[in-house]
Each structure stands twice: as C-alpha cells, then as structure tokens.
C-alpha cells in the first residue's frame, strides 16, 4: 500500500484534506466543495482510480457523511473518500460522468437519504413511489405501517 504517496499526492491538490489510517484503507476527508475537483484528478491522473465499487451515505444524526470506495484496476489500490454534508441541506456535486456506476448509486442515496447531487443528469426516484414521504435510511425515520425496527 502506497499510503504515504497517496497522502502526498492528495495534499498537493487539497492541502486542507484530513486523513484517517485506522481502518483497512486510507480514509480521506474532504469538503463537499473540493470533492468534484479531487474526483477528476483521481480518475485521470497516473493513479487511475477507475473503479468506484461502493458509494453510500451514513447518517450521523448531526450530519451526513458520503462515503466513496475507489479502486484502480491497474494498480489494485483502494482508497476511501469521505465528505461531511449539512443534514438540513445536503448537497454535493455528482460524479456520475466520471464513474458511470455513480448514476444509479447516487439516485439510490438521493431517495433514501435525501442528498441532492448537483448536475446529476437524471436525479429521480429509483426505488420508492413518487408520493413517498421521508428518507427511509435516515436515523429519525419512523414508519407507522411497515415494521422496519424490532
């Protein structure tokens, strides 16, 4: 794992990024405004992170955290990018034109967490009905009809 090299590379683009190495892979925390710029560099630089294998969101009650798991098919490296969003008005730039798989995954996060992906080509609901209210995977979601908690 070339952790130090990645840290150096990301610091050269985003000096404000912070790192967490406690887990299996290097975690990088960036601001939502910086994400789009970093994503393009990661995809098109020599590191070539061309495979976005997991895109999801976590509700921490005070804020939402977007989690992007990236990997490169050439170098077999993995990196995790995180970005904290304001829970009341979660907005982040889309990456669906960089990694096409993000189009569906972002639509899923949009309807289950309420995150708005700016400039997404087709941000509509994928799973839920059009008249569904609330964001089911947020922690404060209550469903009076269906049993989702024990």
């Amino acid at each position: 794992m070339r952790t130090e090299a990645f840290k150096e590379y990301i610091s050269s683009i985003l000096p404000t990024a912070s790192y967490d190495e406690s887990g299996e892979w290097l975690n990088v925390l960036v601001t939502p405004a910086d994400w789009r710029n970093l994503a393009e560099k990661l995809r098109h630089s020599e590191h070539k992170f061309d495979y976005l294998f997991c895109l999801t969101c976590v509700d921490w009650k005070t804020h939402l955290t977007m989690v992007y798991h990236l990997s490169s098919t050439d170098h077999r490296e993995t990196i995790v990018i995180k970005s904290n969003l304001d829970r009341n008005n979660p907005e982040i730039e889309t990456v669906s034109d960089i990694w096409r798989t993000a189009e569906f995954h972002e639509r899923e996060v949009y309807e289950l967490f309420g995150v708005k992906f700016l400039n997404h080509p087709d941000l509509r609901r994928l799973i839920l009905t059009d008249d569904f209210e609330g964001f089911p995977l947020r922690k404060d979601f209550e469903d009076p009809v269906n049993m989702i908690k024990l």
Partner: peptide
C-alpha cells in the same frame, strides 16, 4: 424502475 420487492434489508439490519 425498481423497488417492487424492496424490503429495506439495510434498514432492517440496523436493528
């Protein structure tokens, strides 16, 4: 169009 058998397994797993 998905979701016809969405059972929210991710949400269920949380409890």
């Amino acid at each position: 169009h998905l979701g016809y058998i969405h059972r929210s397994i991710e949400k269920m797993s949380e409890s």
